[in-house]
Amino acid sequence: MEALNVFIKAAFIENLVLAYFLGMCSYLAVSKSVKTAFGLGLAVIFVLGITMPINWIINEYLLSEDGLIGMDLTFLRFILFIAVIASMVQLVEMVIEKASPSLYTSLGIFLPLITVNCAILGGSLFMVSRDYTFGNSVAFGLGGGFGWFLAIIAIAAIREKIRYSNVPPGLRGLGMAFILTGLMGMAFMSLMGIDPAALAAGVN
C-alpha cells in the first residue's frame, strides 16, 4: 500500500521533470515529435526501474556503515551509482538495437545521453536522502519513470501542434519549449496538496 503511495507521488505529485526539473536536457532535445519521445520515455522508465533497486542494494549493503565492509564509504556513492547507471544504459542500448533498429536510429545519440539524464541519478540520490525501503525504491523508480514519460509525451504533443502557430521568430523552438515547460510545471503544482494516503483511505 505504501509502495502505491510512493508510485503515485513520484509520477504525479512530485514529477521529476515538472516539480524538480530533472532530466531537462533530453526532455527538451528529444521532444520534437511524439514518436521519439515515446521511445525515450519507455527507455527512461526501464532504466530508472532497474537502477533504483540495484543502487539501493549497493547503498545499503556496500556503502553504509553497517554494511558488509563495515566502513562509511558514502563518499564513493556518486561513482558507484553512476557506474551502475552507465552499464544499465549500455544494456538497454544493446536490447533496443536488437529489438527495434528503427527506434535505435531515431533515438540516435540521445540513448547514451540517458546516462547523463539527471532524472536517473537524481532519482537514486533522492532515494538515499529519503531513506526509502527496498519496495518503495522500486515503486519510486517506476513511478518517477512513468512521470517522466508522461511529461515528455505531453510536451512533444504540444510542440507538434505549436509548430503551426505564429510564434515570434526568436522564441520559436527552444524558447517556447522553456516557457511551455514552465507553464506545465505550474499546472502540476496544483497536484501538490494531494495526500495519497488520504486518497486511498477515501477521506477528503
Binding site: 516539480a19 524538480y20 526539473f21 522564441l171 524558447g175 517556447m176 519549449a177 522553456f178 516557457i179 515547460t181 514552465g182 507553464l183 510545471g185 505550474m186 503544482m189
Partner: peptide, 10 residues
Amino acid sequence: LPAAAMFVIG
C-alpha cells in the same frame, strides 16, 4: 518557484 527559471531562460 522553479517554473520561473523556465520563463526567465525562455
